[in-house]
Structure formats: C-alpha cells, structure tokens
C-alpha cells in the first residue's frame, strides 16, 4: 500500500473521520441537548430558558451541523462500498434522521419570528424539541447497530439485517439513550457557563439530573455489552483499554463534582473531555470495522488517488476553517456570552 507522509493513508482518513465525529458530538450534540431542554423546560422561568437556549444556539448551530455532512462526504469518497451498505441498511433510520434534521432546523428558525405567547411559538417549540430528542437517539442507535454484528454484508454486497440483534437489541437502544443523555448533559453544562443568577442555578440542577441519568444508563449498559456487542467487549476487556476507561470515569466524576461545586468552567472542560474519551474509546474498539463484522475500512477503501486528494487538501481547508471557527466562537462564546447583549 502507498503511504501518505509516511503514514497509512487509510488510518489517517480514519483519524480525520474520528475528529469530525468528536467535533460533531461536542458541538452538534450540545445543540441537540439544547433542544431537549427546550422541550423539557418547566417552571416559572420556562420561556426565559427557551430564549437563553435559542440565543446560545443561534449563531453557531448551522456551523456545528456541517460536521455531519463532512463525515458523510468523507465516508462516500473514501469508503464507497461501506457508504452503499450503510445507506441500504439504514434506509429507514436515516430517513427518520433526515426528517428530524429538517424539522428541527425549520422549527428553530420559524419560531425565532414568533411571540413567546403565541400558539405558533408553542407548536414550533414542540416540534423543535421532539426532533432534538429523537434525532440523537437515532444517531446513537446507528452507532450501536454498526458494532452489534446484526448487519451482514455478503461479498456481493447484499445487505441483510437481523432485526432483533440490530434495532431491538438492548445495547443499540441503550447507546441511543446514552447519546440523548450525553447531549442533554453537555448542553446543560454549557448553559451554566453562559447564564447567570437563577437561570444558572436552574441549569446546574438540570446538569445534575442529566448526569445522574447518564451514570445510571452507563451502569445498565455495561453488563449488556458482553452479550449484545461481543466485539466491543473484546476490546474493552483488553488491558490496553483500561487506562482510557478509567480516565473516562474519572472525567465524568470530575465534571459532575464541578457542577455540584459550581465550578462551571472546569465542569465544561471535563464534560467535553469525557465525551471525547468515551467516543474515542468506542472508535478504537470498533476500528478497523465500519460495519462489524463484514465491512472494514481496509476492505472498502477506494484506490489511493481520492484518499490522497482528501488528505492533501485537508490542511488548506483547515487553514481556512480553523481561524473562521475561532472567530465565531470568540465572538459569541467568549466571557459572559449572554450578559451584555440586548
């Protein structure tokens, strides 16, 4: 195999996809989470919560969302047969994801023009919230399904799905729920940093709730993995993966404790790190598979030129992207982002 800057080019693409998935999880995930809190908003400051969430998401959600397009494009450019199999296997699931993505974006901007007391505000709020809840659940299920072994692809490319092992497997559903909880947790923690006073206390409480649900789900999910997803378990049980797992648990504890002690800056940092470690751990366990057990990155990779194209143009793309993203986040997510605006 050819190399790229002395590296295995397929591994390099895998790393790029992983980075994009991580970015989508901590940025796009929090946008989904914002929608979940929007849906669950209760209490006297309900509409204030919604406005704070809208204000936090407004400038960034469209950019955060491009990561998933990026993942998709890299997937079909470098691993076309895998993309084909995924498109067939997830024909229904992806259609629902699309409806979720379309409705969510539309409801969010439609609502921005309504009065908080109008019926249209209520309608768009419900649609926005419901779509924000369901979409990450489905995406989480997709992650569970590709590691579960229930999707088989014959050498001729025929896709067959064992529904019990895929859609109805407790592990798949559990990973879906965990994705929802993680998104909600991230959003609540971010919002503690962005708000002040009573609102901040409200989001502190919500972070603690979401954190507890997350711990509970993880505790239920863990014993199911050896039977539900033996291939992931094999990896988790190896001594090499002990340190990242311990690190992930530690970070989760640090972030929850920091929320409890109102050290929100640290909480945000640890929450992000925790998501990176959890997803990174999953990715290392899953690699080199794209769809376990039949499709790997190596048996579905295209010929070298498209891979080289992608990797060679990446630095130029990032040279444009990173300063622009930096500016976006500096302008809207600097100190006290919601304190001074009118």
């Amino acid at each position: 195999m050819n190399t790229w800057l002395g590296l295995d080019p397929i591994l390099a693409v895998g790393a790029v996809i992983l980075l994009a998935i991580l970015a989508y999880a901590v940025l796009g995930g929090a946008d989904f989470g914002g929608g979940i809190w929007d849906l669950l908003a209760t209490g006297p400051r309900r509409e204030q919560h919604r406005l704070a969430i809208a204000k936090a998401m407004g400038p960034v959600w469209e950019a955060n969302h491009v990561w998933i397009i990026f993942i998709l494009v890299i997937l079909f450019t470098v691993f076309p047969p895998a993309f084909k199999s995924l498109s067939i296997a997830f024909f229904g699931l992806f259609h629902f994801v699309l409806v979720g993505i379309v409705l969510r974006g539309a409801a969010f901007v439609f609502r921005a023009n309504a009065e908080t007391t109008s019926p249209s505000w209520r309608l768009w709020t419900q649609i926005f919230g419901a779509a924000s809840l369901i979409t990450p659940f489905l995406l989480g299920m997709a992650v569970g399904a590709v590691s579960g072994g229930g999707i088989r692809v014959s050498p001729a490319g025929v896709v067959t799905i064992n529904a019990a092992q895929t859609w109805f497997s407790p592990v798949t559903i559990g990973i879906g729920l965990l994705t929802v909880a993680l998104s909600a947790y991230l959003a609540a923690v971010y919002l503690t940093v962005e708000t002040r006073g009573e609102m901040q206390e409200d989001f502190r409480k919500r972070s603690l709730w979401a954190g507890s649900v997350m711990f509970a789900l993880a505790a239920i999910l863990l014993p199911l993995i050896p039977t539900g997803s033996p291939h992931l378990w094999e990896h988790m049980a190896s001594p090499l993966s002990a340190p990242p797992m311990v690190l992930g648990v530690l970070l989760a504890i640090v972030s929850a404790l920091s929320v409890y002690r109102r050290n929100y800056g640290l909480a945000r940092f640890a929450a992000v790190a925790q998501v990176l470690v959890i997803l990174g751990g999953w990715a290392f366990g899953h690699w080199p598979y794209i769809i376990y057990p039949d499709v790997t990155a190596y048996n579905s990779a295209t010929a070298i030129p498209a891979i080289r194209f992608l990797l060679n143009t990446l630095p130029f793309g990032l040279a444009l992207l990173i300063p622009a993203l930096w500016l976006l986040f500096k302008v809207f997510k600097g100190e006290h982002p919601q304190a001074e605006t009118k």
Binding site: H65, F70, F76, P80, T302, A303, A306, G317, L328
Partner: peptide, 27 residues
C-alpha cells in the same frame, strides 16, 4: 455512490469547506 463516490467525492469535499465557511460567516 459505490461506483462514483470516489470520483465525485473530491468535489463534495472541497464544497464542504465552502459550506462550513458560509455557515460560519452567516452566524
């Protein structure tokens, strides 16, 4: 897409950067 993904993908990749910048500047 299986047949042509790697052929048209490079253009979509470059376009991805344009989308990204467009969304960022729009925000």
């Amino acid at each position: 897409m299986e047949f042509a993904g790697s052929a048209i993908g490079p253009a979509f990749t470059l376009e991805g950067y344009a989308f990204f910048l467009e969304a960022i500047f729009l925000g």
